[in-house]
Amino acid sequence: MKKYLSIFKIKLMNNLQYRVAALAGISTQLFFGLVFIMVYLAFYQSGNNNNLPMNWKELVSYLWLNQIFFSLIFIWQKDRELLNMIKDGNISYELCRPIDFYKKWYATMYGERLSALLLRFLPVTIIALNLPSPLKLYPPISIMSFILFIISMIISSLLVTSIALLIHIIAMFPLDEKGIMAFIMVIGDLFSGSTVPLSFFPNFLKNIAYILPFRYIVDVPFRIYSGNISTNSAINPLLLGVVWLIIIVIFGYILSLKAIKKAIIQGG
């Protein structure tokens, strides 16, 4: 366990160096946050909206959180290093090392996501909290919901890393990753609720989204924060999130063993 923790720590320290890139990320997130919010605001101001699934405060917090935690939770983050290794055959060196493939890459990816988040989230959060009224991020509705939100974010980040790693492992089989990766990523993005909150989906798509694991990444934590999912009814989705996490980690781990056995080393 210790070596994986240090891999995680090295990755974290390493990426914290890229402050200029973070600056670009911060401005992009603020910009997109504002644009999305203005679009929804225009919708909300356009009348006849009596049976909306979220009130304005809940929605605006949801949208800001989506931008603030973007670097932690977006599914389609490709690990160039790993993908290039798969492509050029250097993965064979990786397999010689006395460390577990799955755990190593899990630690690496988690470290990368966390460092990206640490560099970006504070400035965006502070600015979002201090914007004028209809555009601002509202504080969580209660201390209890905030605690549950933190727990759900931890589950969310662990889950999204396991899904991203699973996609990379799947990519080891056909060697051309682009098609399958794009497919899972688009589906995941859509059904996690990061493009449109799931509550706004037509019913049949919402039902599909509720079966899939992706909603525990975005939909559940952000709605807990704003109170759209009450603290009483939050326990169930949190447990389901943990169940999905365990399933995907086990599945990914077994698949990684298979992939290594079958590994076709490209080139010399």
């Binding site: 225009a42 919708f43 356009s46 909206n49 699934p53 497919f183 688009v186 449109v196 706004f200």
Partner: peptide, 20 residues
């Protein structure tokens, strides 16, 4: 598929709102 999700956002929102 990617583009479909872009158009989907607009179509889904107009399911709940009738104008912007």
């Amino acid at each position: 598929l990617i583009m479909f999700t872009y158009y989907f956002i607009i179509i889904a929102l107009f399911d709940k709102f009738d104008n912007i």
